[in-house]
Nucleic acid binder design. Structure first.
Lengths: 164, 164
DNA sequence: TCTATTGACGTTATATTATAACATCTCTAG
DNA sequence: CTAGAGATGTTATAATATAACGTCAATAGA
C-alpha cells in the first residue's frame, strides 16, 4: 500500500493540479467537465473532508446552481464514475480522490474524532480480497475498504477510548 | 483468510446452532436475548441474504411485533453490537454473521447478479489495513471490507459484464 | 444547412434509510 | 416495595437517494 496518510501537503497545488487533470481527462475522453462538476470537485478538494450530498447541494444553491438533490448527486456521480472522487460508504459521503487517474482500489482510514480521512491505495490485483476471491471463484469488480478509528493526532491527543 | 464461500451447507443445523450460541452468549453476558431479537436473527439466518431494516420490519409487523422502524433497528443494532450480524454498508442491509463469537474483521463478497453474499474473515491484527495504518499511526477500531462482483455461479452462468 | 440525437441541467415528487424523543412495562438490586 | 435500568412500543421527523419529466445546447449525420 502506498500511504498518503494524514500528513500536510501543498494544498493550493493539489487543487490546481486536480482540476487540470480533470480537464485533460475530460477533453481526452470526450466527457463534459461542466461548471457544476468542476465546482463540486473544488468543494471536495477544499479541505479534504468527506461531504454529504446535501452539504454539497447547500453550497451549490448559495452559488446559484440548481437547488434540488439530483443536481448534487449527478455531479458527484460523474466525479465518482470518472475516478475523481470516491464515496465513503460508512459515512454516506464523498471525498476527492487522492490518486486520480491511477488504477487503484482505494482504501480509507477515517478518524472518528476529527473526521480526517486518509486514502491509501491497494493494487487491484494484489488487494486483500484477491486470495479469498480466487479460492471462491468470485470475480471482483469493485471494492470498499474503510477503516474507522483514531488518526495519529487524536491518538496522541488522548481521545476517549471507544465505548462498546 | 478463512473463506466460507458460496458453498452449500447444512442450513437447518446452522440456524439451530446460531440461536444456541446466541442464547449461551446472552446468558453468560447478562444481556437479554428477547423474542424480537431472536426472531430477527432467525430472519437473517433464513436464507443468508442481506435484509434491509424495513424488510425485517415488514416481517415483524406481520408477526405481531411493533410496527415502527425503531423496533427493527434496535434489534439489528443489538445483533450487530454483540457480533451476531453485520451491516453491509454498500447495501444498507444486514446479514447474519458466519463466524459468531470469533474475533474477526469480517469481509464480504457480494454478487451483484444473484445477491448472494459470502463472508470471509480476516484476522484483525494481520488484515489488509494494518501495514498502512501502522505507518500512518492510525489506530483501527473497526473495518469495512466489501467486494462487489460476480459469484462463481453467475460467472459461469454468463452474467453480463459490468457496464461503465 | 437542417434536423435528430445525445447529454446536461433543472424541476417536482417520492422513495428509502435512520433516529430523536417520550410513555409504558418488567425485571432486578437494594 | 421501590428506584433504576433496560426493553418495547409509539409519534414524529431527519437524512439520504432516485424516478420521471421538460428544456436547452452541442453535435453528428443527412
Amino acid at each position: 500500500m502506498d500511504t498518503k496518510g494524514f500528513a500536510k501537503h501543498d494544498h493550493r497545488a493539489c487543487i490546481v493540479d486536480m482540476i487540470a487533470v480533470a480537464e485533460a481527462y475530460s477533453a481526452a475522453n470526450k466527457v463534459q467537465f461542466t461548471p457544476v462538476r468542476r465546482r463540486v470537485l473544488e468543494l471536495l478538494l477544499e479541505d479534504h473532508k468527506a461531504l454529504g450530498a446535501y452539504d454539497v447541494l447547500e453550497r451549490l444553491v448559495k452559488e446559484g446552481y440548481g437547488s434540488q438533490p439530483p443536481v448534487a448527486y449527478r455531479a458527484l456521480d460523474f466525479l465518482v464514475k470518472h475516478g475523481f472522487a470516491h464515496k465513503i460508504e460508512r459515512l454516506n459521503a464523498y471525498i476527492a480522490c487522492a490518486h486520480p487517474q491511477k488504477i487503484h482500489a482505494p482504501a480509507f482510514m477515517i478518524c472518528r474524532q476529527c473526521k480526517a480521512i486518509a486514502e491509501t491505495m491497494t493494487t487491484p490485483t494484489k488487494g486483500p480480497f484477491n486470495q479469498a476471491a480466487e479460492e471462491a471463484g468470485f470475480q471482483i469488480e469493485r471494492t470498499v475498504f474503510e477503516a474507522e478509528g483514531l488518526c495519529p493526532k487524536c491518538v496522541s491527543g488522548g481521545a476517549p477510548r471507544e465505548v462498546s
